[in-house]
């Protein structure tokens, strides 16, 4: 579903956010992306959303090379990727219903269909009774659930979450994680960037560790530990990797290597 081949991201000031990252996330997988602050987690998510372009290397999503994606095709790629942020990024002037409906309005769906799908999702997330509330009147957990609803309402193939539990207390964090794993069980590929080591250990899912822009470790899915620790944020680099900081040594290499698909033809069947 997601493939990165020797991806580099260098900024004009010379700092390297990502160095030679090669990895693969399969369809339907749940992957934690971890590492200390500045490790490159958010940069990687930004590259997947084409909020930034890689300096070098290739990124394939669903077999399509987004490194060569035309600017005009970016919106159509993003319709296949849901995104959830730590700070929720809800529109403060729009109520819960309208915040979720944004993702369907851009598709130009009939109003009745939008209402049906949004209400169904809000009901599933126990938010229907808050449909007319403004984000400022919601708790942190509710706001994050609204953000997840917005990311999911158009049924994307991939859900990216950048520190989705970062602003939540342990109880709410567990609730959000439960929601994300449930979404994953329904077939959506989920990538969660977090530096909450306890959260990662608790779920024992595949974990990609970044350190100073390099892929430091790729720990496969573990038997789920029955550890019910409250999540705690750590500021130290996550010590998952015992191997040297070589991305090449630990990645899931693709036998067929990078596919130079000039695939910038994401479905442009939406609005103008």
């Amino acid at each position: 579903m997601i493939q990165l081949y020797h991806v580099h991201k260098r900024y004009p000031n010379g700092s390297e956010a990502l160095v030679d990252v090669t990895l693969r996330v399969r369809e339907g997988e749940f992957v934690f992306l971890t590492g200390p602050s500045g490790a490159g987690k958010s940069t990687l998510l930004r590259l997947l959303l084409v909020m930034e372009r890689a300096t070098d290397g290739q990124i394939l999503i669903g077999g399509r090379n987004i490194h060569v994606l035309r600017d005009s095709s970016i919106p159509f790629l993003r319709r296949n990727i849901g995104i959830v942020f730590q700070d929720f990024r809800l529109v403060p002037r729009r109520n819960v219903f309208d915040n979720v409906a944004i993702a369907l309005e851009i598709l130009g769906l009939p109003r009745r269909e939008i209402e049906r799908r949004v209400n169904q999702l809000l009901e599933g997330l126990r938010l229907l009774h808050r449909a007319t509330a403004l984000p400022g009147d919601l708790s942190g957990g509710e706001q994050q659930r609204v953000a997840i609803a917005r990311a999911l309402v158009n049924e994307p193939a991939i859900l990216l979450a950048d520190e989705p539990t970062g602003n939540l207390d342990p109880e709410l964090a567990a609730e959000i994680m439960g929601l994300l794993t449930d979404i994953n069980r329904h077939g959506t590929t989920v990538v969660v960037a977090t530096h909450d080591i306890h959260l990662i250990e608790r779920y024992g899912l595949r974990t990609l560790a970044l350190h100073r822009g390099r892929l430091a470790d790729d720990r496969p899915r573990q038997p789920r530990p029955v550890v019910d620790l409250p999540s705690a944020r750590v500021s130290q680099p996550v010590a998952l990797a015992s191997s040297p900081l070589s991305s090449q040594a630990v990645v899931d290499p693709s036998p067929d290597g990078p596919v130079a698909v000039a695939a910038d033809d994401f479905d442009e069947g939406g609005d103008a």
């Binding site: 959303l49 909020m51 919106p75 790629l77 995104i83 002037r93 944004i102 851009i106 158009n154």
Partner: peptide
């Protein structure tokens, strides 16, 4: 601009 950024992230075209 916050709303515009969000619209862009969920796949709205510049025209939209």
């Amino acid at each position: 601009r916050d709303e515009i950024d969000i619209l862009g992230l969920v796949g709205a075209t510049p025209t939209f």
